[in-house]
Design a protein around this nucleic acid. Structure first.
Lengths: 343, 343
DNA sequence: ATATTGAATGCAAACGTTTGAAAAAATTTC
DNA sequence: GAAATTTTTTCAAACGTTTGCATTCAATAT
């Protein structure tokens, strides 16, 4: 029945009446092996479809060549871009990526990390879940660090952890976005904020607030509403904004999805963009260039983040004992399009 | 230096001057272990952060609890939805997903599969790359099948392989989309086709053609242009369509991205949607509901596909020897929105 | 006092591979 | 033809865990 049991080195050894060591060496082109033996064994191995059992090698060498990627979600453009970046650098090096999705849950994050450690993953890229962040949990991370498994934070980070991290400069991106709106002449700028507590949300929020302050513009509480990063979550808040007695003349969305939701609501109300209301998003997702009007946004280099994070990991891995964590902050860049270009 | 070597059962055994077997049994709550010994060992294990080495267990039990997911890309909404579906079912069962991205390359696909087999992955979900499909390669798959590693095709499939598969009924979805356009009264329906050779492209194309035939409408070659699934790739073809002497009055895009690209071009030309030109996409991606006008599209149940594929895998795994491959075809569903509702 | 039972623990093999050291076989040298 | 050398092969241990069977030791029954 189980005729499909993978062929092992022992099987081949039996076939050639030699020892497993010989087979192993033959397959690995060890010089001390007779040319004929080598050729015969290699031919036979190919014929029967022998494939090295990497599990046993992992055990022997304590190297698994697998890395963990723990993220809250994979359904946004940005996250997948990051994963692609990781992939681009690490797949060619022979690493396998184990993707774990936490759905913003602390428990899942904890379990994922524990599983990865048990599987002797050689490094972990982590974007902490919202729940973890809100509650300020960190014990599950201590575990990883104690093991000296390289841990790289992506985007969402803990300030006080001795680990490397790769983040985008959300603050200045947001600042630039709002400054741009002001320079165009918009006076009442609303912000559709991300979920409270997340670095990403808070940094962009801070950029928004500080920019308004810099230009001595009032910060109106009622112009700041929460969203959940996705399109739908922008609909109601935007409606509320536009129904205000003194509605905003521009909206800065925490990301493109939210800005696109706002765009839709504004258009439904018959407002012209950018004449009646200006719009700016964040992410520079592919779609943002093709909405009508096209969306002014802040480019967020997801692929690059993934590639930089890979670099940080490799540095830590090859670092000689006295490892010093690095922080990479990639600049974000304002991309001006039609949705804010009131003339 | 390597004070971080993970604690093993042997370490604990040494500490308690007992045998590894005792420790193993104590940790696994084996009944034949003295209550005190058990408690002491468990406490100590927790204290020093012992974590079972799953690699050694994998070797011993020939079970790795890891699955391969091989896909051409992860930067589309649909693909990530599928992965989420797989995750939803399989993560709770203790499986780890190894995601491999092939970038539509045969070589990468082949290497990925080989790697997964070497790692003794217990099952593989595969959406074959375009290159593989075009060239009709299949030897790399024979290998998987010979190993009796469950192989589940997702969407892109080989007709003549004895494996389970989960696909969406692209043909009828496309048919319904075009039929809808016809019923509204559109006469010259163009199609922005996907890359040649891919099942997905061809099925939708066939739906388009056959529907036109059914209603005795002419099939105009010049109204069928290729795209690459992404927004940008729709821009030029759409321009060409709209510059024709007798331009189309509706466009059926192979997916939402392409339809949104077309929408943009049409609007730039000052055309009103749906009055001057009707638009239909495919996928029902989240954004499609919030474009302006909102996009009529065909819902493609990615999450469900992932979940069904998981089920197929589990069936095959638990199947008693005489395994019969299953084909699941999920219906796609027309979602009528503004972009086609000319009155 | 001896046999019997029961509880608790240890032994050894197994999973598949690699590798330093030892052994065996083949070849060369004198 | 024996010694020396070189080439080729085997041995045994290791990686960390589990598990059937054997062993030990103490308590109980005869």
């Amino acid at each position: 029945m189980n005729s499909s049991r993978p062929v092992t080195i022992k099987d081949i050894a039996r076939r050639f009446r030699c020892s497993p060591s010989t087979v192993s060496r033959a397959l690995n082109d060890h010089p001390a092996i007779n040319e004929d033996t080598r050729k015969n064994i290699q031919e036979y191995a190919k014929e029967v479809g022998y494939q090295r059992n990497e599990v046993s090698l992992s055990l022997l060498n304590k190297k698994t060549a697998s890395l963990g990627v723990v993220v809250p979600t994979i359904s946004n453009y940005y996250e997948t871009a990051v994963i692609e970046g990781l992939h681009t650098v690490l797949q060619p090096m022979g690493y396998t990526l184990n993707i774990c999705v936490t759905n913003e849950s602390y428990l899942l994050e904890k379990e994922s990390l524990s599983k990865l450690l048990s599987n002797r993953t050689e490094g972990i890229f982590l974007s902490v879940s919202q729940e973890t962040y809100d509650a300020g949990y960190y014990e599950h991370l201590e575990n990883v660090i104690q093991r000296k498994t390289p841990l790289i934070f992506i985007d969402r980070e803990y300030e006080d952890f001795e680990t490397s991290r790769a983040t985008v400069d959300d603050y200045h991106g947001a600042f630039a976005a709002v400054e741009h709106l002001i320079s165009i002449g918009y006076k009442q700028i609303a912000h559709l904020k991300g979920p409270n507590g997340l670095t990403v949300s808070e940094q962009r929020f801070k950029g928004y607030v500080n920019c308004l302050k810099k230009y001595s513009m009032p910060i109106r509480e009622e112009l700041i509403l929460n969203t959940n990063f996705n399109v739908e979550s922008a609909i109601l808040p935007t409606k509320r904004l536009l129904e205000l007695a003194s509605p905003p003349d521009a909206i800065f969305g925490v990301n493109d999805q939210v800005a696109i939701g706002a765009m839709r609501v504004a258009k439904d109300k018959g407002l012209r963009i950018p004449q009646d209301i200006g719009l700016v998003g964040f992410d520079n997702s592919p779609i943002s260039a093709y909405t009508f009007p096209s969306l002014t946004t802040v480019h967020r280099p997801g692929r690059k983040i993934g590639m930089e994070a890979s670099r940080l990991f490799l540095n830590q891995l090859n670092g000689s004992g006295d490892f010093a964590p690095e922080s990479i902050v990639l600049p974000s860049e304002l991309v001006i399009r039609e949705s804010s270009l009131r003339i």
